[in-house]
Simulated scan of single mutants.
Amino acid sequence: MKLFCVKKIHFFLLFFSLSTQSQVKDLFSKPAELHTISERWELTPESSNGTFLITPYKSIYILPVDWYSSPNEQPYSGNGQPEYIAPPGTNYNNIETKFQLSFKTKILHNFIFGKGDLWVGYTQVSNWQIYNESLSRPFREINYEPEVIFNYPLNFNVLGFKMRMAGVAFNHESNGKGLPFSRSWNRIIFHLGFDRNNWSVYVRPWLRLRSQKDDNPDITQYIGRGDINIIYTNNKSIFTLTGSNNLNFNKNRGNTAVSWSYPIVGNLKGFLLVSHGFGETLIDYNNLQTTIGVGISLIGPL
C-alpha cells in the first residue's frame, strides 16, 4: 500500500515536471489576474487557457517561523493496532518552518455537455524542524495530496451570491511514512463555488473511502466531514477563513484557520496564518493545537 502511494506521488511529480519553462514563467508572471473563481478555474471562454498548462491551485507560501502550542512528540493512531504504537517521544521544537506548494493542470476541456473540465492537482505541505540542531534539522512531516477534479461551470443566484461552479474530486492524502507513523486517507470531495463582489466562498463536503488496512479509521471524527473556505478581498489585503467540522454535537471537533496576505513588492506578499484545532498535519490528525506562522506567499487563495 505504501509503495503504491509513493509510486503515485512520483507519477504526479514527473507529470508536472514535463511542463515547459515558458509555462512556469507564465504561472508567476500573471498571478494578480487570477483574482476570481472564474479566472482561477477558467470557467468562461475568455478565461480558458486550454489544456496541460500548469496553473495555481491552493496558496503557495513559506513560513520561516511557524509556532505551535503542542508538539506531537509521540503520535498515536485510533486503530489500536500494536504496530501503530510509537516509541517514546521525540524532542521537537515549538518553532519550525512550514511551506506549501500547490499546482493544477487541465487535462480535458469542455468534455461533458460542452462545458465540464477535468483537472489533476497536486499539493504538498512540509513541516521542517530547521531550528532543531540536536535532531539534525529533520522534516517532521510532509503531506502529499494528489487529486483528480471534475469541474462544471454554473451561473445562477443563491441567497444573493452567484454560484459559479460545482464538481467532484478523488483526493488521496498521505505522509509517505512507514509504521508506526504512517497516515493516509482517500476521499470523494464534492465542491460548490460562490462569489459576490469582494467575497468568494467554497463549500466542500466529503465522503471518506474505507481501506482494508486503515492507518487512521477515526480521522473524520477529528478533521471533520467537510469544510468551508471564505475569502474576502479589501483593497490589497486578502483575508481567508477556513473551517472544518465533524458535525458531531456530542464530541464536536474540527479546525479553524485564518490568514491575511498583503503585497510587499511585485507579486510577493506578506503572509500570516493562524490555526486552532485538530489535523494541522496528518500525523497531528488527533492532536489539538494552536499554530501561528509568519512568512511570505507567491500565490494567494482561491
Rank of each mutant, 00 (worst) to 15 (best):
Q221T: 11
V6L: 15
A169C: 10
G300H: 05
D215S: 08
D284R: 09
N175D: 11
I283Y: 08
L272E: 05
K251A: 10
Y122M: 09
H276P: 06
N267Y: 07
D117P: 02
N255Q: 14
N286H: 02
G121M: 10
T97G: 11
N248I: 04
L298M: 12
L207N: 09
S38N: 10
Y68R: 14
K98C: 14
Q100F: 04
A166R: 00
T256A: 12
G80C: 04
E145Q: 15
G254C: 03
V125N: 13
N267P: 12
L118N: 06
I107F: 07
K236P: 04
Y144Q: 10
L273D: 11
P146C: 05
G295E: 04
F139C: 09
K30L: 12
I37M: 04
D218Y: 00
T123S: 13
Q129F: 06
L159R: 04
P153Q: 01
Q74G: 00
K213C: 03
L43P: 02
W119T: 07
E39V: 07
E73K: 13
T233E: 08
Y202W: 13
W119R: 10
N186F: 09
G121E: 08
L247R: 12
Q23I: 07
P217L: 01
I130K: 04
D66K: 05
E42N: 03
N267I: 13
G226C: 06
T281K: 09
V258C: 01
V203G: 07
V120W: 05
F278E: 03
D26V: 01
L118K: 03
Y152N: 02
V168K: 03
I95S: 13
V201F: 10
F99D: 11
G89S: 03
W119Q: 09
H276Y: 15
R208F: 05
S70K: 14
F181Y: 15
